[in-house]
């Protein structure tokens, strides 16, 4: 029952090299989200929800923007937020920062390799969950653009729709 044990448990060991890898990256956007982390998560989401699928393309439902604003919301679990970021660092390190430049086949290989570790598997699952939240939550949260997620799955949200995010807390 100890979910956080699994979140924090790492099968990877990263040392100074990874810090060097990140040192040239700039701090990205108001959430202090580093650009390399942003880019790799966005790239993973685009692989999960590609352009030629029956589901909307990740960019069409603003999956990365949703993810960033969601994990920095005060109601979001801070351990999971940290895990999303640290897992991204692990994945960057595994692929020496090159994942975003791979073609689709190489991305597939890299992701399945990452999935083979307990931590990698859990991180990919978390990115998928956050992406699905973007795809299928009420459009007021910034994802599910023009209800494209609901339309693709021939489903609907319930009524009444929210008038504000998180009940305006």
């Amino acid at each position: 029952m100890n979910r956080r044990f699994f979140i924090s448990f790492s099968t990877y060991t990263f040392i100074g090299a990874s810090n060097l890898l990140y040192s040239n990256n700039i701090i990205f956007n108001k959430f202090q989200f580093r650009k390399d982390i942003y880019n790799i998560i966005e790239s993973v989401q685009k692989h999960f929800f590609p352009q030629d699928s029956q589901l909307p393309f990740a960019s069409e439902f603003s999956s990365i923007e949703f993810l960033v604003s969601t994990i920095y919301h005060k109601r979001f679990d801070k351990d999971i937020r940290n895990f999303v970021i640290s897992g991204a660092k692990d994945f960057i390190s595994q692929e020496n920062g090159q994942f975003i430049n791979y073609n689709r086949e190489d991305k597939e290989i890299a992701l399945r390799k990452f999935e083979n570790s307990s931590r990698g598997s859990k991180w990919l699952s978390r990115i998928m969950i956050l992406s699905m939240e973007a795809l299928l939550s009420d459009p007021i949260y910034g994802g599910n653009f023009r209800k494209s997620g609901w339309i693709a799955l021939d489903t609907k949200g319930g009524n009444p729709k929210p008038k504000s995010r998180y009940i305006n807390l």
Binding site: H73, R75, F76, E133, L136, S137, D138, I140, Y141, G157, G158, N159, P160, K161, P162, K163, R165, Y166, I167
Partner: peptide
């Protein structure tokens, strides 16, 4: 009250 899955069921 709304049917906001994200707010009521996931947070």
């Amino acid at each position: 009250f709304s049917k906001d899955e994200l707010a009521y069921c996931r947070r």
